[in-house]
Amino acid sequence: SIVTKIISIVQERQNMDDGAPVKTRDIADAAGLSIYQVRLYLEQLHDVGVLEKVNAGKGVPGLWRLL
């Protein structure tokens, strides 16, 4: 499923980069989806406690990390 793919992308990127959070844009590119589509999935995963959003604010790139 797309959700499983997104989780594995975040996991893979974090492992490659010493646990650093992953940008929404990088996840979207790797999943082959638009940034808006991916954001909806990321928000859902956040709501159920799978991911945390590391930063927030208007015009700030979203950074995500697995919990």
Rank of each mutant, 00 (worst) to 15 (best):
S34F: 15
G62A: 15
E43C: 09
E52V: 09
A20V: 07
E52M: 08
Q14V: 05
L33Y: 04
P21Y: 10
A31N: 01
H46R: 14
Q37E: 12
L63K: 08
I2Q: 04
R65I: 10
L33T: 03
P21C: 08
L63A: 13
G32K: 07
L42K: 00
G32M: 07
L33N: 03
H46Y: 10
D17H: 15
S1Y: 10
D17F: 15
E43V: 06
Q11E: 08
G59D: 09
V22A: 04
N15E: 11
D29S: 12
K5Y: 08
Q37K: 12
A56F: 08
S34I: 04
L42H: 00
E43F: 07
G59I: 04
R25V: 10
K23F: 05
V22M: 08
I6M: 03
A31F: 03
G49N: 04
L66G: 01
A30N: 04
V10I: 15
D26W: 06
R13V: 05
Q14T: 08
P21A: 14
E43P: 01
V60L: 13
I2L: 09
I2R: 04
D26C: 04
Q14R: 03
Q37C: 12
G32Y: 03
N55V: 08
V38C: 15
Q14C: 06
V50M: 07
A28M: 03
N55H: 10
I2G: 02
I35C: 08
R39V: 13
D17W: 14
V10S: 00
I9W: 06
W64V: 01
L40F: 14
R25G: 09
S1K: 10
G62D: 15
A56I: 10
S34R: 06
G32T: 02
L67F: 09
S8E: 10
D47L: 13
L40T: 08
T24C: 04
V10P: 00
V48Y: 11
I35A: 05
L66W: 08
Q11D: 04
K53G: 03
L67Q: 08
G32E: 05
Q44V: 11
D18E: 10
G62P: 15
L67M: 11
S1G: 11
V60W: 14
D29A: 12
Y41V: 12
Q14K: 03
K58V: 10
P61C: 14
V48R: 13
V38N: 00
E12P: 01
P61G: 15
D17T: 15
R65K: 09
K58P: 13
D29P: 01
G62T: 15
G57C: 07
D47H: 14
E52G: 07
A28T: 01
I6A: 01
V10C: 05
T4N: 13
A28E: 03
R39Y: 10
W64T: 00
D17A: 15
D47Y: 12
N55P: 10
E12A: 11
S1N: 10
V3R: 11
K53A: 04
G19V: 03
Y36L: 09
R13K: 12
T24L: 03
K53D: 09
A28Q: 02
M16D: 07
W64E: 00
V48G: 08
E52C: 08
K23M: 09
G62R: 08
V54N: 01
V48W: 15
Q37Y: 08
I6W: 03
T4D: 12
G49C: 04
K23D: 08
E12V: 08
E52F: 04
V10T: 02
S1F: 11
D47M: 13
Y36W: 13
G59Y: 06
R25E: 14
L40H: 09
